[in-house]
Structure formats: structure tokens, C-alpha cells
Write a protein that binds this DNA or RNA. Structure first.
Lengths: 342, 342
DNA sequence: TACTTTCGTGTAATCGATTACATGATTGTT
DNA sequence: AACAATCATGTAATCGATTACACGAAAGTA
């Protein structure tokens, strides 16, 4: 019922103009102190609330930022979003969520929708690397809306990104398996068009070579990030002439599937076979046979992305700084690969 | 670089007025067809995009809706949000996320912030039931902004809610434990000021009574939703004169902790002791010793909340309908309580 | 032909807040 | 006392789109 109170209502009540009210509320130094105090008191008593939409229209800034992720119901993305929200809320920004469901068309739609909604920035993890959405990305850049990639990024001049060092992640996980005595290490790889998966693979390969081990193409099995895919991969691997004795998986879900399949085949973990995953999903720690995994510090990634955005948003658009933040991955060693301690 | 194109730019180019352009773009029947076509074609060629902020100011609707949850990085809430987003996106609404971190002050701030941002509706799960935030809630209702509770709700006249039948959830889980032969069933309870936890408890109690079993106060242990709390609860319970032989936990995390502690004490599950949790968190299914749990169909809950919102938003504010949607819980029976099949 | 409808557009107000510029009041200077 | 500087506030345009009302032109009617 309480009608919307505007500065005009306050002005009328005090027999002054809306301009004076506006200035008083904005602490304009040209306003007499007594007037300012009176206006502020009256505004409070009338329960006045600034209309952000009017402000947004006038200033051209909505104080909303858009976040696009493949899906929100994954611990990783949810945590990143949590980080973004925590960092941006104190600066008065609200976070608008969009999901692509791994669909490029949706990604493009989301980009246009967010620009339409006049967001002040877009933070996103790309769905896939493709030229299909180039027009949508160009549209964002042309509108001079800060764009920041996190985790899954894409090469675009002038666009900043926050990622982890996936190469190193793959490297330390693989090296750990080697140090546990594994000699034939397989890799469950992800979509190689995405740098994160490419780099995890390259880190894996480099670790093998640096430690005098052979890299075998047949040990690399492409999988989707699912339990089922991990099971199938193990079935394939065990049929090889020389089956592997360890797996470094680019996905925790696939790692879990692999473990389930190995158990069914009565292969003992970690004694006969070691497994390491990637992402440090909550369940990896909860299992009785807990799973070694590479942590991507999603909360930190979200906060960092938010900070990079804040740096860019106020920059008088002189030179566009392309900032590439790379966070360090952290290996959490658990039972699925701990021969020495178990 | 592309300057913002407005309807005035289009008007100037075609030597007509902005009003005509606006009407043409909105398919106003009074516009000559040739004019309409010309305007639409020109708008497209100039890459015109309607400024939603101007529209929002004029219409008083922002096309944003706010969602407030305790935290986003929990599978349950993330899934609900996913459901909301999927249902509302096709209707042109964007979803703004806020977290309370279980803090009442944050909850109040979030409510004010969302109202300030002129959201068209607020969908939320309350942090706790308390009178502390009454002013904030009153503020929402006074502004006539549709408010809908999901999962954790609060009694406010005229406010709709979407929940699951927690009583039934507690009932079927407990009854299942009974049918597996358990005779002394304990309960790990949550914050009893929240109806969801209260009802889970009441369902548990009723199932005991309906099956001729004694309800013992000492079998009810209040816990936080954490692994640690579950461990501690088991320690307490096992020190009782007649220790229980089963646990119905109102939280999956506490159930997990309970299981871990039972294992440490070398109590075999499900043979000597059965456990059932609540929420059907992903990990319950992934464990080798998978955990029986009550599913709350979060995706459906989100979609339903969104639908209730859509019903209310266009209602000419004649009679405020208070709609209480109650979804059915579903028990997922797994190893932690399957004596018969294992 | 004269007069009424109907049609298609233009005019101008509106949503609420901000702000360059103008103006009148007050104080300061010599 | 006369004029300049300073201060506090008012006036009006602006952000971009929508829409009630007005109006001239074309079509219809008698």
C-alpha cells in the first residue's frame, strides 16, 4: 500500500525543489547544512528509497553484472559464483545468473540478453571454443562491457581471464602417481578444444617424459565428465595388451566411475591400481576410499574474477588491459593413490 | 565503439517521430503496414536494441526477480535455483542471486537491496524463523512485490510457499528402518524453529507410534548439518544404556558423519545398524556404502516456485491468493539400510 | 458537395533522478 | 555605499521508451 515515495514528494513536503533534495541526499557540498539535515531526516521519516532504475537509466549503469556458466548445480561453478557474489555485493553489484547447459546457442542468447539488460560486466566460463558465437562476443566488446573469463577461457584480444594452472595440475597429479610407484599411467581426457583440458593433458604428458616414462597414445581415453564414461574407459583400458596401473582423470566423476569399475573387476586400490581426479568435488573427500584430486580453489577464482572486473570497470577506457591471472592448483592426496601411507 | 542506437536515431533517419517508431516496433495496429516494415527493417540494419532500463523505469517492472538462499554452493539450493532459472528465462526474467550465509542480518539486507533494485518478485528460503526481520518482510509486502517461500518457509498471511511434505519424508524413512527390523531408532534433528526440521521430527515420531514402538526423548540429538556433528551424535548415542540400532538423520552430512563414526567403532552397517539421511545429496549415491536418503526434488521445487510466482505477478492485485504447494518426498533406499536385499 | 468516420502520425507528458546553468540573496572589500 | 564574490537554491534538460490526446488527410455517407 505504501505509495512509492520520490524526491518530488519530499520536495513538495518541504517546499523546495527536487533538485535540492537530490543534492542534499548526495551530500553535495553546495547545500546548506541545515537543509541537508532536514531533507535527510524527512526522507527517512517518509521511508524514501532511491529508485535504482531511474538512476540506472540516467547513469547508464545498472549495477548488475551477469555470470554465465554451463550449469549452476555443480559444486565448482556454484562455488565460483559464491566467490563472485561475496566480492561484488559490498560494492553494490547484484549478480545475474545464466546457464548454457553446454549449448552454444544458449550461450549466445545469454550474451545478448545480458547486454540487453544493460549489465555493467559479464563474467563467464565458456561452454566450448568455437567461432559460432563470435558475433555475440563481438557485440559485447563493441558495447564496451567488461568481459572476463574464468576457468574455461577463450582467446580474445583485450579480454582478461582468471584460470588455474591446469598444466601444473596435470603435472603434479601425474608426478604423484609416478612417485607412488605407478609405471603405466593412463589419462581420461576432456574436450581438447578447451584449454583447461588440453593443458591437463599436456601436464600429464610432460610429467611422464620428465620422469623417463613412455607416453602412449592408447593410454589417453576421451571421456565426458560422468560416472558412466569413467566406467567405460576402464573397460577399454583393461583390454589393452599392457593395461595401465594408474589413471589420472581430468574429471572427478569419471575418476569415480573408473574406481567403481575397477572394484567390480576386483582390482585393489591403491595396491594394484591408483587413481587421481580433478576438481576436488566434495564427494572425493567423503568416500570411504577417498579420491585424490586436484583442487581448483573455485571460491578464490570467483573472488579474483570479481576483483579483475572491478579494476576494469572504473578504468577510464584509455588502454584496455588484458590481465591473465593464473591460480596455483593444489593436489589433495587421498586413499585412492596413497600406497606409502596406507 | 558502436554508439547506443535509440528509437530517436531511427526516427531521424526515416524522418518520422520516435512515437511512430515505438509503435511500429510494438506492433501497434494503428501503424500503416508499410511504415511498420520499414521501421523494423531499419531498426535491424542499425542494430537497434531496446533499452530495458528505460522500459523498466517507464513500466515500473525490472524483469528481474531476486532469489535469496542461505548459500549457493550446496547441491540442494543450486538445483532449486537451476529450476527457477530454467522456468523463468523463457518468460524474459533474469534471476538475481543473494546469499545469507545463515545470517539474519544478511537476510534483512538482501531483502532491502532487492526491493531497492526494483525486482518484480522475491523467491526465498528463509534462514531462520525469527521476528528480527519482520520489518524487512513487511517492507516487501507493502511494496506489493510477490514473495514466495520455498523449502524453508515462514508463516506470513498472503504469502505462498512451495515445500515438500517433510512430515511424510520423516515418516517413510523411519517406517522403512522399522521394516528393515530396526527396533531402536534415533533421530538427528535440525533447528526446530524451522518447520522443515520440526516436521521431519514429527514424522519420525508418528512412524514410531504408529508401529507400536516407544518414542524416547534421549534418542533425539540436535545436530548442525555437518559431518562432525554426525560423528559426535553417534558418540553420544552409543553411550546410552540402550544404544539405538538405527538413525534417521535430518541431514545427509550428519548421516555421513554418523556412518564414519560407526565404522570406526567397528559396527557393521547395515547388519547391526541402519542409517537414513535427508536431501539426497549427490555423494549419498556415490559412496561404496551408499546412503539411504529422502529426495526433495529440488529442480521441481524451483520450477514450481517459479510457476507460482508467474501466477501471482500478473494477477490484478484483487485478492491475494495464498498458495501452499506441497511436493511429495521420495525415499531412495540404498545400502546403508538395505538388510533384506544385501 | 458537405459532413462524418476512420486512419496514421505527430505532440507532449511521463517514469525518477541528476546536473549544467541561471538567479537571487548574502557577505566581503575598498 | 557601491560593487564583486560567494553561497544556496531554482529552472529546465536529459537518460530512452511509452502512450493519451490532438490533428490533418483520406475514405465513406447522404
Amino acid at each position: 500500500m505504501s505509495e512509492k515515495i520520490t524526491i518530488y514528494d519530499i520536495a513538495k513536503k518541504l517546499n523546495i525543489t527536487a533538485a535540492t533534495v537530490s543534492r542534499a541526499l548526495n551530500n553535495n557540498p553546495k547545500i546548506k547544512e541545515s537543509t541537508r539535515d532536514l531533507v535527510i531526516k524527512t526522507a527517512a521519516s517518509m521511508n524514501y528509497k532511491q529508485n535504482k532504475l531511474a538512476l540506472a537509466l540516467k547513469s547508464g549503469r545498472s549495477n548488475n553484472i551477469g555470470v554465465i556458466v554451463p550449469r549452476i548445480d555443480s559444486n565448482f561453478f556454484a562455488s565460483v559464483i559464491r566467490g563472485i557474489e561475496e566480492e561484488l555485493q559490498p560494492h553494490g553489484y547484484q549478480v545475474i545468473i545464466c546457464q548454457t547447459h553446454e549449448d552454444l546457442k544458449r550461450e549466445s542468447e545469454n550474451l545478448y540478453t545480458l547486454i540487453d539488460a544493460q549489465v555493467d560486466g559479464i563474467l563467464m566460463s565458456v561452454t566450448a571454443v568455437s567461432t559460432e558465437n563470435d558475433a555475440a562476443f563481438r557485440n559485447v566488446l563493441e558495447k564496451n562491457v567488461p568481459l572476463i573469463f574464468f576457468d574455461r577461457s577463450k582467446h580474445i584480444d583485450g579480454v582478461s581471464s582468471v584460470t588455474i594452472n591446469d598444466f601444473k595440475g596435470g603435472y603434479i597429479a601425474t608426478k604423484h602417481l609416478i612417485s607412488e610407484g605407478c609405471r603405466c599411467i593412463a589419462h581420461l581426457s576432456g574436450d581438447q578444444s578447451l584449454e583447461i583440458f588440453k593443458n591437463r593433458f599436456l601436464g600429464y604428458k610432460q610429467a611422464l617424459l620428465d620422469n623417463g616414462m613412455l607416453f602412449k597414445e592408447e593410454y589417453v581415453v576421451p571421456v565426458k565428465s560422468s560416472v558412466e564414461a569413467g566406467k567405460n574407459a576402464v573397460e577399454t583400458l583393461l583390454q589393452l595388451e599392457t593395461p595401465p596401473d594408474a589413471i589420472f582423470s581430468s574429471s572427478d566423476f569419471a575418476a569415480l566411475g573408473a574406481i567403481q569399475e575397477l572394484k567390480e573387476k576386483n582390482i585393489s586400490i591403491p595396491k594394484e591400481f591408483c587413481v587421481a581426479g580433478f576438481s576436488n568435488e566434495p564427494f572425493t573427500k567423503f568416500m570411504e576410499l577417498s579420491i585424490t584430486s586436484v583442487d581448483q580453489s573455485p571460491l578464490e577464482m570467483g573472488k579474483m574474477s570479481a576483483r579483475v572486473f572491478l579494476e576494469q570497470v572504473d578504468k577510464t577506457d584509455t588502454i584496455k588491459i588484458e590481465k591473465k591471472v593464473v591460480l596455483a592448483p593444489e593436489l589433495h592426496i587421498r586413499k585412492s593413490s596413497s600406497r606409502t601411507t596406507s
